[in-house]
Design a binder for these strands. Structure first.
Lengths: 318, 318
DNA sequence: CGCACAAAGGATCATTTGATCGTCATTCTG
DNA sequence: CAGAATGACGATCAAATGATCCTTTGTGCG
């Protein structure tokens, strides 16, 4: 159960002065249409620095490109997904061969959440790369809107450092345990531990949840983080698993399997998660298709963020 | 009381296909960082067309650059304004000598509103250039969020065409009269006319209002649109007027003056407008300083959108 | 039918931009 | 404290971009 560190690149941290300069530069550049040279004069820095400020702004999500239209990628595909799976909403990012899917999905979910969250809302988060990437892009949004985070599963703190979000104090309520522990007894003890219990309960009061959708590929994030071995995944697959949510494996109809491993998990159950009105599942890629299909068939999420090829494949296999 | 047409440039209309192409191009360009050449290949159009699509997206507000930080311009100035005038919030756009102020203020208010409005909200709007410019940038937002508009004054339909918003059907409830009419009797008859009455009442149920702040310069928008003559403005000034909201002139303490012209106005009164929890006043420029000061002293608005030089001047003259 | 006109698309080229590399300062480490 | 490593910064130059001008394609009107 060794827990390797994230294979991602480091976090992006901004101090107050950065934020001020980036915001100012971004305003001049994007809204006023000034050249970087002109901005450099206004800010009293070199032109190249302006270029870097803008770059940093985009990278961190401080500067967000918002497309005021549901047409991101394809309105048609979005509508078809909603109709086909009885969803509340869907986002489909445009196709782009060769580009890594994770950050693209992350941006899309971040944008969806930024629009959907009201000030002081509570956002419940699951486990996975999609969640991690989304949070990174949302980092600048939290301090502004005063949105709090609460985790649906253990193991979240292992990667939340990547996102540039600070500590568990204040606005992040994270379950301070791994996602999976070595024995059912320990898992049970942790679940009834007051603070853990408290966070689990609180998570269910959120109006919005963001969850990753795990595939049962040998390259699954669960494996890469050391939560499962490839052999276990292999075994679960033979028992009918097509994917996982919150560490629980389900079959092609979205029914949670009766697996031993589930008794080792410290997390809200998918069944309890149904109490949350908006559950956003985010995933893309050919290896995720089966997992997404199962999740949607089982109505374990009602909003989907994915990309164009994946959406097409989902609709084909309906 | 002749009503000249808007001195603005024409509206920007987008059809569904434009929206699709622009959204896609914008996603590829800003989020994925692809070059325009690459995007041209993906979309099957010429590179230069991609350039124009992106340009159009920014112009129309379909592509909005959102800065996820309250630091637009200067956090310090914003905080000082809030403290000095007991405001709920403030936005200060960065200084930029030589750039026309109107579109910059418009973008800032549009951004503030886009963030603040919930789906299905009702937005009350006053009269003026700042309102008109703001609405232009918000045009793509309305169909998406299902926000409805309601006018606080007559005369709004005269310029709403500029914004790319369609007709009064559906989401815009506009008072179908001029702002000012030729006799007090006619004004009174209009005010009690059922539909007008209905809109006036509805406007007061909005949770958010956006209003312009009129100066008493000879170049005031009221004059340019033919609602007032320069001579009248001159006269009002001698009676203590420093500015107007919704067609009503007030003095340096924000007290509405007892002027004959007010009996010719078809609009909600500033007094009634206090029922609206968030009243956003938007204005900038040296000639507006006195008007803004009066408005804020009289607590006729509790959120201010302005630019950096204006904010500094306001704080100096406090 | 032809003409003028406007709108959209495309080619050219000056400007703007960001990738690359080298320098300097700062911090970590032995 | 030296040395290495890291990161910030700026110069250079190739690539990307958009302003300008020109061509094409409709569109209305005499």
């Amino acid at each position: 159960m060794s827990q390797v560190s994230a294979p991602q690149d480091g976090g992006f941290l901004l101090d107050a002065e950065d934020v001020e300069q980036i915001s100012r530069a971004a305003w001049y550049y994007y809204n006023d249409g000034l050249t970087q040279n002109h901005i450099a004069d206004l800010l009293g820095v070199s032109r190249i620095k302006v270029s870097r400020l803008l770059e940093k702004g985009r990278q961190t999500g401080l500067v967000e490109l918002r497309i005021n239209s549901p047409h991101e990628g394809s309105l048609r595909l979005q509508e078809e997904l909603v109709a086909a799976f009885g969803l509340t909403d869907a986002r489909v990012v445009p196709a782009a061969e060769g580009l890594p899917a994770a950050p693209r999905i992350g941006r899309a979910s971040a944008s969806l959440l930024t629009q959907g969250l009201a000030p002081n809302d509570l956002l419940a988060i699951g486990w996975g790369e999609a969640v991690s990437t989304t949070l990174r892009y949302m980092a600048p949004v939290f301090p502004q809107t005063n949105v709090s985070l609460v985790s649906l599963t253990g193991g979240v703190s292992a990667y939340i450092g990547n996102t540039g979000l600070y500590g568990p104090q204040g606005f992040a309520h994270l379950i301070p345990t791994p996602l999976r522990v070595s024995s059912p007894e320990l898992a049970e003890m942790l679940r009834v531990e007051p603070y853990v219990r408290h966070v689990l309960d609180m998570a269910l009061t959120a109006k919005t949840a963001l969850i990753g959708i795990g595939s049962v590929a040998r390259s699954a994030t669960l494996v890469r983080y050391g939560y499962c071995t490839a052999a276990e995944i292999e075994l679960f697959t033979r028992q009918g698993a097509v994917g996982d949510v919150l560490g629980y494996f389900y079959d092609r109809d979205g029914q949670i399997l009766d697996l031993d491993v589930h008794r080792h998990v410290v997390a809200v159950t998918p069944e309890d998660m149904r109490q949350i009105p908006s559950v956003i599942g985010a995933a893309a890629g050919p290896e995720k298709v089966e997992a997404i299909l199962g999740l949607l068939r089982g109505r374990l999420a009602n909003i989907l963020v994915t990309d164009e090829p994946t959406a097409k494949e989902l609709l084909r296999r309906i």
